[in-house]
Design a protein around this nucleic acid. Structure first.
Lengths: 116, 116
DNA sequence: TATGAATACATAATCAAATTATGCATTACT
DNA sequence: AGTAATGCATAATTTGATTATGTATTCATA
């Protein structure tokens, strides 16, 4: 019988946006690669953001006016820093609250006895 | 400026499969509509599974041999009950563990101080 | 000093899985 | 009689990931 092996990384579909915005809110100016590293560190390697997911997301956020960017040259290398706009910060508060509620909901399903 | 309003229900993209399997493992035989109601109740209305997401998922799980079904007639109405197969139960344990780890990861990002 | 790993960005093709909309039918409520 | 709730299903579309690829710099090391 065929057993479907779910890639656990697909769990965070839909959560990436609030995750990134939360990190930007907490840490101010950050660049893309730094965001991937911070997620990896914070989650002890559990969550690994792929570049193909991250960069298009950051571009969408910029289009929407949620973040603004600055290019910085580190030696010969280019970094693109992202900062939340005022509207972006406001939006982040909403998203993070929703994410907290969502986590609580997941807990209620997965650990119905302990999660109150 | 355009502010993107995220539908918070989209957060659970990718988590639906382990959620449903977990409920089936806990409660044995369940039918589709019942699953949607239980998720709604458990999460105090926060998570609402749409039919367009649920039924195709259940059909996929059946194809994969994760669940098996029984049709039951309640008066003139038809219900389709789903039960985890042996392989399905095994798989559920893995998925639920992954989901727990994922929840913990989310916590580490959203509540870095309190989540250990 | 060449080679690979890490850093740093970007995008196109593809796939998975949801939303939205629709359809059908029964039962319960008002 | 009409509406909401129960109960299933599926098609069209959209979203948002994966995977693969490309470019380029910096650093460690064999």
């Amino acid at each position: 019988m065929y057993i479907h092996v779910m890639n656990k990384s697909t769990l965070y579909k839909g959560c990436l946006e609030p995750i990134i915005m939360r990190l930007l809110k907490d840490n101010g100016r950050m660049y893309g690669y730094q965001l991937t590293q911070m997620v990896k560190e914070l989650t002890k390697g559990e969550l690994q953001i792929t570049e193909g997911a991250l960069y298009p997301l950051l571009h969408r956020l910029e289009e929407q006016g949620v973040v603004e960017t600055e290019i910085e040259n580190i030696g010969n290398r280019v970094r693109k820093y992202y900062t939340l706009t005022k509207a972006g910060k406001k939006q982040t508060n909403v998203y993070v609250e929703e994410l907290r509620t969502f986590i609580q909901s997941l807990n209620l399903i997965v650990n119905p006895k302990t999660a109150g």
